[in-house]
């Protein structure tokens, strides 16, 4: 499985798996480097990133954001995204980690 696939899998530390379009996933600097076929790390070979620091509930929101970002990257007057207050801090940390 070394061919870059259209979809990649993101796995949270509590085991949730998210299949997400590669183009959206690599908006995150960390994920992009993880999947860089040139460096050929394990993640790049399996197209599967296990993110040991991020819980599923946050990762879900991250995925939502990645799609959201991809969709509105070039547009103005973007509708705000709903962020539940209880995971806001985690989300911030995750975003720092993932470099988004």
């Amino acid at each position: 499985m070394s061919e870059p696939t259209e979809y990649v899998t993101l796995v949270s530390y509590d085991g949730f798996e998210f299949k997400i379009r590669r183009s959206a996933a690599i908006i995150s600097g960390a994920i992009r480097r993880m999947l860089d076929p040139q460096s050929n790390f394990a993640e790049a070979r399996t197209n599967r990133c296990t993110l040991e620091t991020i819980p599923g509930i946050v990762l879900e929101k991250v995925c939502e954001y990645l799609y959201y970002n991809e969709k509105f990257a070039d547009s103005k007057d973007v509708p705000d995204m709903e962020i539940p207050a209880d995971i806001a801090m985690d989300l911030l940390i995750a975003s720092d980690f993932l470099d988004v």
Partner: peptide, 12 residues
Amino acid sequence: MIASRGARKIKP
């Protein structure tokens, strides 16, 4: 990232 709105309590 987009900051959350509303007055709900932010968990540590």
